[in-house]
Nucleic acid binder design. Structure first.
Lengths: 231, 231
DNA sequence: GTTAAGTGGAGATGGTTCCTCCGCATCGCG
DNA sequence: CGCGATGCGGAGGAACCATCTCCACTTAAC
């Protein structure tokens, strides 16, 4: 099927200067467009935003997935670094709540990152399910905070992605009106995480598999919410 | 637009017996289908589920909106009744938390109801924005719980819809795997609502208009409305 | 100046949904 | 029973949308 044209990537040959410039424009445009419209943005949008034709985008990036990866790969690394940094915090509680706040802010600021980090399948080209990579770290953070006595005993690492999904959902929909609204509800959840004798029973915790399944249902590969017709 | 054919509803004439039976089958099917698939379900789904042709559905209900109204009108009344009943609770705290739990459960069990109750515009044919009707009641409930000293001072009635949106979102996506998962996160939020000296600052509350705008963006009549295009 | 590399964007392709149309089936009255 | 009036099914029209291909044309680079 690829007999007709050869993507320049696959040959080691360097790109012509204008082509290289366009490639970078496309990546920059992808970052901007995905950040505001999420991964559901069309490649036409990206192309137009970059000031190039659609064909140019497809010649450089064989599929949308490849472009997403090129655009967001390092943002994912930043995310991972944030988790690692949280372990350095003076207390487990500060580390955990700081982490939640930082990641929530990142997701609020970059919808594409959110789609990629919390979404189930999607690209995950060669970077394994990011969540899975971070779970051990988060588990350590949580155990530490629980040992310190500040975090309630019945939360688990599996709750972190769910909390982030809820909060980023608020961020997403409140963004045009009150871009800071998500922080209010994150604070409410954080206050609920604190150990207290008044607190109620959380019921059964979610397993890691449950979380993966929920993530998959949350942002299915193409978020094609067809709209009701408001006549 | 309805010039070509005359829906039987508009004439006062009674339906033929088979037609009346079909009408009821359609409404029953609509309730079932909307409950599981949400208002995004297609009328073809409903028709098939009812065992009738699509044409039959459209003859009886001039638009999808009309069917939604016929199917969910009384469920909305139940919702309103639940809010009113919450005022009878022994304490404001019990009333509020019980209300949250009941409504969350209703939304978890009936996705169409959730779409209608929390969604911004949609039908609202003759029942005004439901939320607006309930706000005064919820405000009283909250003030009572705050006066009792159990509810933190910095929450407002406007937080209730947002909480329900978050929680019903969890219910929606976790349903196939762990249909009870939403209750866990609702409990977390409820624990965050309790007055406590440890709790952090929630920041600026949302106004009623903010809530309406968020609701409109949450279940938009069209998710992908052309945003100001890049150029 | 030559030529390979690069370009743009219309449109093929495949997907969705809402709703209409009309030949035929069924009801129920006289 | 017979015969309008009423109701029926569901193919398909119309309108959307996104991904990706193709090729006549432009441009870089030597």
């Amino acid at each position: 099927m690829t007999s007709t044209h050869q993507p320049a990537e696959s040959t080691g040959r360097p790109l012509r200067r204008d082509a290289e410039r366009n490639r970078e424009r496309i990546i920059a445009a992808a970052r901007a467009v995905f950040a505001t419209r999420g991964l559901a943005a069309t490649l036409d949008d990206v192309a137009h935003h970059a000031g190039v034709g659609i064909g140019t985008v497809y010649r450089r990036f064989p599929s949308k997935e490849a472009l997403v990866e090129a655009a967001l790969d390092e943002r994912l690394d930043e995310l991972a670094a944030t988790v690692e940094a949280a372990l350095e915090a003076p207390t487990g509680w500060d580390g955990l709540t700081g982490l939640l706040r930082q990641v929530a802010e990142m997701h609020a600021a970059d919808r594409g990152l959110r789609d990629l980090a919390l979404g189930g399948g999607w690209t995950m080209g060669h970077h394994e399910r990011i969540g899975t990579r971070m779970v051990p770290l988060i588990t350590r953070l949580i155990e530490r905070a629980q040992a310190e006595g500040s975090l309630r005993e019945d939360v688990t690492a599996a709750d972190v992605p769910l909390i982030l999904m809820m909060i980023s959902e608020v961020a997403l929909h409140s963004h045009p009106v009150r871009p800071d609204a998500y922080a209010r509800y994150l604070q409410l959840l954080i206050d609920g995480l604190r150990r207290s004798p008044d607190h109620g029973d959380l019921g059964r915790a979610l397993s890691q598999d449950d979380v993966d399944a929920v993530a998959l249902h949350w942002l299915p590969s193409s978020e094609s919410r067809r709209a009701p017709s408001p006549s």
